[in-house]
Design a protein around this nucleic acid. Structure first.
Length: 717
DNA sequence: CGTGGGCGGATTTTT
DNA sequence: TCCGCCCACG
């Protein structure tokens, strides 16, 4: 059989991994080393050479985007629809299994998925109803606690309070929350995985069935798996299984949300005879950029070990710019982008990466006033918009009357005279009778006053009628009907300004989305149910105009997996990056370093590092020392840019200079001074203290400048 | 019932 | 500084 089309575009290491015998396999794949290519080729190899039925293959990723990409590439390679092949996210696959095995999993057939926002609302409600102090039991923190437990595979009954009253209360909240979810037929994201895991654990027959079926499980980004995902994989494959996993310990940046890098090392222990492959040849970046990234990541301990190399050119040096403040930083980046464009480059080839979202504003302002198009990643996504979630809540309630979260959301939207008092009565009834809000509403109407009772009755009747009227309609007409007849559309039309307009447009867009929705044919699932799950699991891209040329802006986290010819790593100041809250322990600092490594390895041709000596943060000025990460990059690879003359101090000066207070004493407002380069001038401003003190000097020939006093070497005249 | 002012808090994000 | 949340008022 001719397999050359499977192999001829692979290098040696890639080829070895792709053609490895069927056995547990771990591929350590550095940034830009062709990880996805190896995965997709492996699938093709299994099908075409090992004669594996696509039916027996399960490929798992973390994001829908990655899953979609992989599916597309596999289909293209195999030249056949990949339908029998399961490709998806952990959550997507778990959902699919639960739809098939809802009985075995102990779920109602109509179960719905709770997204994080819904989950938070449920918890807020719960904390209130238990009359707990919300400042002591912050819903967000409770949410964090619960999800962390689920990610570890732990149920409330498995938790011990160790005599700690705080923990005891959290466990109680977890238990109460779970009861609420079970009663109302909703599952949160973590629950999807946990349910399937438990189902496999308890049902030997089912487990055997899936072990027999999915003989070939492939996992991407394995360093991002958490405890339950790992347990899930082991339950599915058993000790005899032959999973093929790909990952990079150096790119593990999600420890804070439960990811366990150790899973990479653990894999080798848990699957004896694991074949290990390393992909170290990088096809993305220039030699200098790679050397810088390697130099940086070398400072981490406990790595599995890997050194990226390239056969390409060394390229330009990595460049460093010490900005005076955050606006100067933005201006600098802007002018470099202009240069790139003047040389024929496209804006979309430039990416501005930062540690935290708050940093984007200054760049946006600068880009906007320069009329340079840009795109910020990571805003609110389509299915997360309030008006969309309102419409979905109607649909969900129509589908499942027990969905309390949806009930709460829309019972009085648009306002229909169902106030706090009415709702309290309903909630009380539901609580004491352990029933759903829907049932409680029906039961309490009689006890309520005529006004509240009538309103509530009106709401119940509305939902029933929507259900009756739209049940037989095709999905998009059903959606259309519901947003119109519920009064939602009219409600948002009344919103003043263009905000209302946008919302109406979004609702109309929802109808289009429903029209274009291609229901996966999962057994026993109606198009509506399928659409609702899709909306939660794939909340959709945030912004339009993806194809317009524009500067790309995003956090370092969201840059993972992407590449750009020109990359600006901004805000490299201790305290900001590495972030203040991560430097208290070694593990946190190492994760920050990996984040920096991820950022650097996004760059193909040019890598720019910038930091600001002064930064306005949370309304106050802060002064951060240059990030330690800058110092960790081999000096000879970096070229420091100085546009202004000596405003910045050289980063590589080890410590700070001697007692600066003396210098402060030597300068007063109005004093005439002499500067080595700027000549004579007058001090007009003094700001800051100690090593951060700055002076504003009006020079006779060079105009007004702010200088760091400690390094300006001013000579009093 | 909806809005506006006061208050506190302010990594990172996917599903 | 800015945003989101809560409560009080119209």
């Amino acid at each position: 059989m001719d397999v050359s089309h499977l192999l001829d575009r692979l290098n040696d290491a890639q080829r070895q991994a792709v053609t490895a015998p069927v056995a547990p396999t771990l591929v350590l794949a550095g940034a830009g080393s062709g990880k996805t290519r190896v995965l997709t080729h492996r699938v093709a190899w299994l099908v075409e050479v090992e004669n594996v039925s696509p039916h027996a293959i399960l490929a798992v990723t973390f994001t829908n985007k990655a899953a979609g990409e992989m599916r597309g590439r596999i289909e293209a390679m195999l030249d056949l629809p990949a339908a029998p092949l399961w490709v998806g996210t952990f959550h997507g696959i778990a959902h699919r299994l639960l739809r098939i095995h809802w009985r075995e999993a102990g779920l109602p057939q109509t179960f719905q998925i709770l997204d994080s926002e819904d989950q938070l609302r449920v918890l807020r409600r719960l904390v209130k109803s238990l009359e707990l102090d919300e400042s002591r039991w912050v819903p967000r923190e409770v949410q964090w606690f619960i999800n962390a437990q689920k990610d570890e595979g732990l149920r409330p009954s498995a938790l011990k309070d160790d005599g700690d009253p705080t923990r005891r209360q959290l466990i109680a909240l977890y238990a109460a929350y779970q009861e609420t979810c079970d009663r109302t037929g909703v599952v949160d994201f973590a629950e999807l995985l946990l349910r399937v895991f438990e189902m496999w654990q308890q049902d030997a027959q089912l487990r055997a069935h899936y072990r027999g079926r999915f003989r070939h499980v492939l996992v991407d980004e394995f360093q991002d798996t958490n405890a339950i995902q790992y347990a899930w994989l082991r339950a599915l494959t058993g000790s005899e299984g032959t999973p093929f996993v790909v990952g990079d310990d150096d790119q593990s940046i999600y420890r804070w949300r439960g990811a366990r890098v150790e899973n990479l090392a653990r894999f080798q222990r848990d699957f004896p005879g694991t074949q290990l492959f390393r992909l170290e040849q990088n096809y993305r970046s220039t030699g200098n950029i790679l050397a810088a990234a390697n130099g940086l990541i070398r400072h981490n301990s406990g790595r599995l070990g890997k050194n990226l190399w390239t056969s390409g050119e060394r390229g330009e040096p990595v460049r460093l710019y010490a900005a005076y403040n955050e606006r100067d930083e933005a201006e600098f980046v802007l002018s470099r982008i202009r240069e790139w464009r003047e040389q024929g480059g496209a804006l979309r080839e430039c990416a501005i990466l930062y540690r935290s979202n708050a940093q984007s504003r200054v760049f946006e302002e600068a880009l906007m006033s320069a009329r340079m198009p840009y795109r910020v990643y990571g805003g609110l996504r389509f299915f997360e918009r309030a008006e969309i979630k309102d419409a979905l809540a109607y649909l969900r309630l129509i589908f499942n009357r027990a969905d309390d979260a949806s009930f709460e959301r829309i019972v009085n939207l648009p306002t229909r005279g169902i106030g706090q008092k009415t709702l309290d009565a309903v909630r009380d009834y539901a609580k004491s009778n352990a029933c759903t809000l829907w049932e409680a509403a029906g039961a309490t109407i009689a006890e309520l006053g005529p006004r509240g009772g009538a309103s509530l009755h009106g709401f119940l009747a509305l939902v029933e009628q929507l259900d009756r009227d739209s049940r037989a309609l095709p999905l998009h007409e059903q959606v259309d009907q519901v947003i119109a007849a519920s009064g939602l559309l009219a409600h948002y039309r009344k919103d003043k300004g263009d905000r209302g307009e946008v919302r109406v447009e979004n609702l109309e867009e929802l109808v289009s989305a429903a029209r274009g929705f291609d229901a996966e044919d999962v057994e026993e699932l109606s198009p509506l149910a399928s659409f609702l799950s899709h909306a939660v699991l794939e909340s959709g891209e945030g912004q339009a105009g993806e194809w317009e040329d524009g500067v790309q802006m995003m956090t370092l986290h969201s840059a993972k997996g992407l590449e750009f010819p020109v990359v600006f790593l901004c805000g490299l100041e201790d305290g900001l990056f590495p972030h203040q809250r991560s430097v208290t322990d070694v593990a946190g600092l190492e994760e920050e370093r990996r984040l920096c490594y991820v950022g650097a390895t996004r760059a193909m041709r040019q890598l720019w590092l910038t930091y600001a000596e002064q930064r306005r943060l949370h309304g106050a000025d802060s002064y951060g020392a240059p990030s330690r990460f800058i110092r960790e990059i081999p000096e000879e690879l970096i070229e420091e840019i100085r546009l202004r003359i000596q405003v910045s101090r050289p980063v590589r000066v080890a410590g700070r200079r001697g007692p600066i207070e003396e210098a402060v004493g030597g300068v007063r407002l109005g004093q005439r001074v002499r500067h080595g380069k700027f000549g004579d001038g007058v001090v007009l401003g003094l700001e800051g203290q100690g090593s951060h003190a700055r002076v504003q000097v009006v020079f006779e020939r060079q105009g007004t400048k702010w200088l760091m006093l400690a390094y300006a070497n001013l000579e009093p005249l």
